[in-house]
C-alpha cells in the first residue's frame, strides 16, 4: 500500500504541471478568442464561432492523438508532454473564451455607455470597467472549468505523459498479483484532495466578492 501511494504520488507533479500549463494557455488564449466572439464584424465573429464549436465538438483525447501522432513540422514532432499541453491548452482557450463571453454578456449595457459618456476610452472601459465585472461574474465557471481540466489532464497518460493515472497504471502492471485496483483508488483520492480545497476557496472568494458589492 505504501509503495502504491509513493508510486502514484510521483505522478502528481506532472498532473499539476500539465493542468497549470494548459490552464495558463487557456486563460490567456481565451482573451483574443472572446474578443473575436464579441466582434461587431460578422465574418470574424462567425469564423471564430465556428472554430470554437469545432474545438469543443471533438473529444479531448482525439485532439491529443491528432496533435501527438498527426502534427509534424519539418523533422520536428511534439513530445508527449508538449502535445498534451498544447492540445489541452487549445481546448481550454475555447472553453474559457466562451465563459469570458458569458461574463460580459451579463453586464448591463449601461456600464459601457456610462463609461463612454464620461469620456473614458475604449481600452479603459474594457480593462477597468467591463473586464473586472465580467471576471467576477465568470469566476465560479472559471473555477469549475479549471477543476474539470485537472481531471481531464489524465488523458495525457494515453500518449505517454507520466502523470498520476500513468503512474497508477504502471504500478498496477508491475505488481499484477498484489496491486489490483488499489493504485486507481489512490489516484482518485489524490484528485479529490487536490480539488476540494480549490473548490472551497473559490466559493468563499465568490461569496466575499458578492458581499463587497
Amino acid at each position: 500500500m505504501g509503495d502504491a501511494i509513493t508510486a502514484v504520488l510521483l505522478g502528481l507533479p506532472m498532473t499539476l504541471l500539465v493542468t497549470a500549463l494548459a490552464f495558463t494557455i487557456g486563460a490567456i488564449g481565451g482573451i483574443p478568442i472572446m474578443l473575436g466572439l464579441r466582434s461587431q464584424w460578422k465574418p470574424l465573429r462567425l469564423t471564430i464561432r465556428f472554430i470554437v464549436d469545432l474545438i469543443r465538438g471533438i473529444p479531448p483525447i482525439v485532439w491529443l492523438f491528432l496533435i501527438y501522432f498527426g502534427v509534424q513540422i519539418g523533422a520536428l514532432r511534439f513530445d508527449s508532454l508538449s502535445a498534451a499541453v498544447v492540445g489541452l491548452g487549445i481546448i481550454a482557450s475555447a472553453y474559457l473564451a466562451e465563459i469570458y463571453r458569458g461574463g460580459f454578456a451579463t453586464l448591463p449595457r449601461g456600464q459601457a455607455e456610462a463609461s463612454a459618456a464620461l469620456g473614458l476610452g475604449v481600452r479603459t472601459t474594457f480593462g477597468r470597467i467591463l473586464a473586472p465585472q465580467a471576471l467576477r461574474t465568470a469566476l465560479p465557471s472559471i473555477t469549475t472549468y479549471g477543476l474539470s481540466l485537472l481531471k481531464d489532464s489524465s488523458i495525457a497518460s494515453t500518449i505517454g505523459v507520466a502523470d498520476m493515472v500513468f503512474a497508477a497504471n504502471m504500478f498496477a502492471r508491475q505488481n499484477p498479483a498484489t496491486a489490483g485496483i488499489v493504485p486507481f483508488f489512490i489516484a482518485a483520492a489524490v484528485y479529490l484532495i487536490v480539488s476540494i480545497p480549490i473548490a472551497v476557496f473559490a466559493r468563499r472568494l465568490d461569496t466575499r466578492l458578492r458581499k463587497a458589492q
Binding site: 448591463p108 449601461g110 456600464q111 455607455e113 456610462a114 463609461s115 459618456a117 464620461l118 470597467i129 473586472p132 465585472q133 467576477r136 458589492q213
Partner: peptide, 12 residues
C-alpha cells in the same frame, strides 16, 4: 456630462 435613468454607477 450625462446622467442616466438607471444611474449606471460602477458596482465594483
Amino acid at each position: 456630462g450625462m446622467v442616466f435613468q438607471s444611474f449606471n454607477l460602477f458596482p465594483h
